[in-house]
Amino acid sequence: MLELRGVTAGYGQFTALWGVSLRVSAGEAVAVVGPNGAGKTTLMRVISGLVSPREGDLTFEGQSLARLPAHEIVAHGIAHVPEGRRIFPMLTVADNLKMGAFLRSARRGYRDSLERVYTLFPALAERQKQRAGSLSGGEQQMLAIGRALMSRPKIILLDEPSMGLAPVMVLRLFDLIRRVREEGYTILVVEQNVRQILKLVDRAYLLEVGRIKMEGRADELSEQDFVRKAYVGL
């Protein structure tokens, strides 16, 4: 479904990704782990078009997306829940979700999508009229994920969804991600909680200083020194 081949990307003179190749099949959940500064966020930003690749190709359902701007990539069915959530703090919860359905194709089914997101995250339904900035960290992350679902995507990119959350909240969040998965969404997730995320995904990649160092099925990887390696630099 999603395939990156030899993607090199960076910021100005700086190169953050060196020839990264990665593949996610439909219905799969895949994790990317690695130490701080490895380039995980950059990888997500390349897929969603916020950073354009210098070399290599990026295809989604057979179409090349490498040269498209971010606002056109969403329309292909790729929703990116960015690092740090990036909700609109001054807007209400409902308005944040509305912005998730900004795409013309998503507006038609807006009411239905809203219903589904509220069913998935009842806490958001209770806080519809509240300013998003006043929510707790966990609720903000739910909102960020809910907002992504509003675009009716085929794949969801989650960048460190557990960042800054209390341990209890992290467990609840992973539970919610599992439920999102069961809804049939394909997921590509970046996480620092390696042990826990490996229980949730099918496959995983280890990214280190801009290069894929290891990849494989989650159940096999857990037994290797993968977990330890992912924490290098922490």
């Binding site: 609109f88 807007l91 308005d95 795409l103």
Partner: peptide, 16 residues
């Protein structure tokens, strides 16, 4: 109202 709060996030919503 949203774009002034987070321009990049708005791009991720599909808005130019």
């Amino acid at each position: 109202r949203a774009v002034s709060q987070d321009r990049d996030a708005m791009r991720l919503m599909g808005a130019n």
